[in-house]
Each structure stands twice: as structure tokens, then as C-alpha cells.
Design a protein around this nucleic acid. Structure first.
Lengths: 242, 242
DNA sequence: CGGTAAATTGACTGCTCTCAATTTACGTGG
DNA sequence: CCACGTAAATTGAGAGCAGTCAATTTACCG
């Protein structure tokens, strides 16, 4: 395999930042290739590319097979799956350090979800070929992949327990706590999801979400500090769980 | 490490069938050790044991660390997690060929769930030590583990989409279809779960489950053929999803 | 056969969905 | 900078669904 075989269509609607130089990646220790030597990234590998996806842009679609996985450097990606009735349900929110699209590592699989950037997202796109080759050369990579999968599984179980159980009010409190926990902002300020997204996460109608959020605002548990940014009362939210 | 270090307390309430002779396992091709040579199972490994768990018996408890994982030869295991309010939610049903307790492969972890046999279950208990050693010697094992984890993740996502979305009637129809799909019985006859279990699976009250099941029986979609065994009308159930 | 647990059913309350009408927010182009 | 159009959020009203509490029946195990 030579350089000329390494062409790959750019992700539609995404900004291509450049070829990723994994050997000199500043955050490699946090990412999938943690533990691999700098010399691992030889030129016979299909290249890894670095993209910026603007908010609302799809990384991939359910049922497709683009032959690439993504690691998230920064931002939030929503993973959505179709209900029998054709409605979208959000089954996971993947943040920094997560790897998504790993289902393609089993030959013949297609993407299980449609992945869409919630805010602007900063990601690396890694061909499955490259993973396979590195896997064969560096057994530690498989452990890294296993840990990312285990992490996603833990998240999925939390999702079932916290966001799919009990009355809507409680599920929303859990969701807000989840967003507080995973946001990097100061002072319990976090970027609020859209109402439709929250509805698709907890499995309720947008109206029910809106009414409950409005209640929380009236109670002072939630406070708007800027368009799309809210401050949440961590203690009050936790109290709602019991 | 010698034989004397290989003592391990028997699983409480389970019947010990014997040391597993993986090299001659009749179903190894279907299990976790598929792809490993017969010579892999050397005597320096902590031994793998074969157990029968009667219905209702726990394999392990959330928060513990017994240092073993399980592969399921036959039967059904329910994985339960605690809600903040102290209620049990069933997040997964693991059947034949599944491997559970894999979270222990990351050092420092404890079991994420309480695992309980639904019917009688036939399982192999594998020390994490043994997995680690085999992993170091046979890189293909890591792929097998990755595939089991991916399988569990796919199941968890299905769970969210099918069993945690929409009105109770629809979730129950999905659950019955799930049980039909994963049962080995003939003629769409399957072992019915208890009402409390079904309630803990779809996140509803036992009364709601009972009322909906009663409706389905009156409509002829469900038919009792023996105590604990029902026949389900596959087509009628599918029709309820649209 | 008795005791306990599970399942069933009723009554009632409260929650959530749907449909609909407004209001608000936001990006576009004048 | 403002006007506009579209999409999202908010709020109301009504119907139906689901939770709780309670009583009763059924099933099951020793």
C-alpha cells in the first residue's frame, strides 16, 4: 500500500484541520493510542485526519459503513438510533476521550447510530484499516479499545438506570446533573441542550421537558446566565433524586 | 504459581459440576476461548470451574470483586443495578454465549451489576488472572472479549430504544418479542418472566405489567400452555409496534 | 393442607401525551 | 440596523395512561 491509496473523501460539512501527527499529539496519553510508541505511526498506514464538525453536523449515519472510527478530542456527540416507529432516540452522549463507531471493528458491521455533533466538535478520524494494522503490531491497543467499549457500556447502563426510569421530573434532574458533571464550565454553568434533544434523551415529549425545565427555573434550581448557558443548583438537583 | 494457590471458594448456593476441561469443551467454538489452541490450557493457570446455578441464585453482587468472570453455557442471567432510590432496575438479560462480569478486567473495578439466574443456569467461572495470562499469550482472545463487549453494548442500546421508549403496552410487546427471539422453544412457546422482573425491565409498576399482559391474553395474542410457559402470536405482537 | 408470595382487579389520583395557540429566539437578507 | 421568516420554546386544555393503595384471588412450596 502506498500514499496514493490513502485518499479518502472528506467528511461532508466538516472542516478538515489536517493530517493528524499522532506521534506528536499533545493529548495522545488520553486518547486511544495511549501506550503506543511514537514510532508506531508509519507511513504505510492509512492516514488519520483531524476535523472540526460544526454544531448539528453528522459524523456518520446509522446503517452506513465509512470504514472509519472517531476519537473525540473536544465537544459532545449525540448517538441516535431509530425506533420502530421512526422516531429518533438518543442512546448516548459521547464526550472528550471517547471513541465512537467501534462497531465497525467487527467486519461486516455498519454504524449502529447516527452520530451528530451537539456543539462544535474536534475529532480525529481513524480508518479501521489503520486500527487493524496497529492492533496486530501492538497488543496494548486492544486493551485500550476494550476500555473504551467498557466505558460506553457503563454509560449505557447508567443511561437506563438514571434517564429511563421513574417520572419525567426525576429523569430531567438526572440529565441536568449529567450535563453538569461532564461540562468543563466554571461555577456549575453548563451549555443547555435543546428541548428536542432532551426529550429524545429521556424519552418524553418536548412539552413535558419544557414544563419541567420551566418549573425548575421558577424554583431557582436553574438560572439562565446567557443564551444557551445555564447555572444549575447541584445540591437542589441531587435532593430531587431522593 | 502452583496447584495449591488455585483454591477458590465455591459460589454459594450453586452446584459445582467440576473443573472445566476447556481443551475438550464441546462448545468452545461458541465461547470466549474460540480460536485458542487446545494446548493453551496449561496447569499454571488458575482453574476454570463449571457451575449450575438454580433459578433465583446470584452469581455475583454489585460492588463486589470476586476476581472471576462468567461465560454462560445455557440459561438466562438478569443483570440488575440499583436506582438512587434503592430500587432494582434490570439493565440486561444475558443468554448463552454471553460473557458477564467483564468490567473486572480493568484493575480496581467492582461488579457493576447484581447477576441472578432467571431459570436454572449452566455457566463457567473464569478467574480474571487466567484471562490476563491467556491474553498475554494469545492476542486473539482480546478480540473475542471485544466482540462480547460490543455485543453487550448493542444489547444495551436495543434495551434503551425498545424497552425504555414509548407507552407500557408497546414496551411489553417489545419485551415479549425479545423473549420469543431468544428462547429455544418450539412453536413460539417461551418461558414467561415473573411480573416483577418484567416491571423491572421496562421500568413500570407490576400492576401495569399485569394489566397489559391480561389484555394480551384476552385478545388471544398470548396463550398459557403450561405453568410458566406461554405461546405468543409473533405477527400480532409485531403489528402492535407500528 | 396451610402459609406465603405472586398475580389480578378496582378505584382513584396524578402525570404525561396530544393538539393547538402564542410567544420568543435566531439567522437571513434587505 | 431593521424587517422578516422559520424554527424553537412556552403555555393551555383535554383525554388517556400509569402509579399508588387496597382488596381479593390464585399459585406454589413445604
Amino acid at each position: 500500500m502506498n500514499e496514493s491509496t490513502h485518499k479518502r473523501i472528506y467528511c461532508t460539512d466538516a472542516t478538515w484541520v489536517g493530517r493528524s501527527d499522532c506521534a506528536r499529539c499533545g493529548i495522545r496519553d488520553l486518547m486511544l493510542f495511549s501506550g503506543l510508541p511514537e514510532t508506531a505511526f508509519t507511513s504505510d498506514l492509512e492516514p488519520i485526519d483531524h476535523f472540526l464538525f460544526p454544531a448539528g453536523t453528522p459524523l456518520y449515519q446509522e446503517g452506513q459503513d465509512e470504514g472509519v472510527i472517531f476519537t473525540i478530542r473536544k465537544g459532545l456527540i449525540k448517538l441516535m438510533a431509530l425506533t420502530e416507529k421512526g422516531e429518533q432516540r438518543i442512546v448516548r452522549l459521547a464526550g472528550a476521550k471517547s471513541a465512537i463507531g467501534l462497531e465497525l471493528l467487527d467486519a461486516g458491521n455498519t454504524y449502529r447510530h447516527t452520530a451528530i455533533a451537539v456543539g462544535d466538535a474536534d475529532v480525529c478520524r481513524i480508518p479501521v484499516n489503520t486500527i487493524d494494522l496497529l492492533n496486530a503490531r501492538f497488543p496494548t491497543l486492544c486493551d485500550q479499545i476494550r476500555q473504551r467499549l467498557q466505558d460506553q457500556l457503563d454509560r449505557a447502563d447508567e443511561w437506563i438506570v438514571n434517564l429511563a426510569t421513574g417520572p419525567a421530573k426525576l429523569r430531567i434532574a438526572n440529565l441536568l446533573l449529567f450535563m453538569l458533571k461532564h461540562s468543563t464550565g466554571q461555577n456549575d454553568v453548563f451549555p443547555m441542550l435543546g428541548g428536542n434533544d432532551m426529550a429524545a434523551i429521556i424519552g418524553a415529549s418536548p412539552e413535558t421537558v419544557s414544563r419541567n425545565i420551566a418549573d425548575l427555573k421558577r424554583q431557582g434550581v436553574l438560572e439562565k446566565v446567557a443564551p444557551g448557558r445555564y447555572r444549575g443548583d447541584h445540591a437542589a438537583l441531587e435532593a430531587m433524586l431522593r
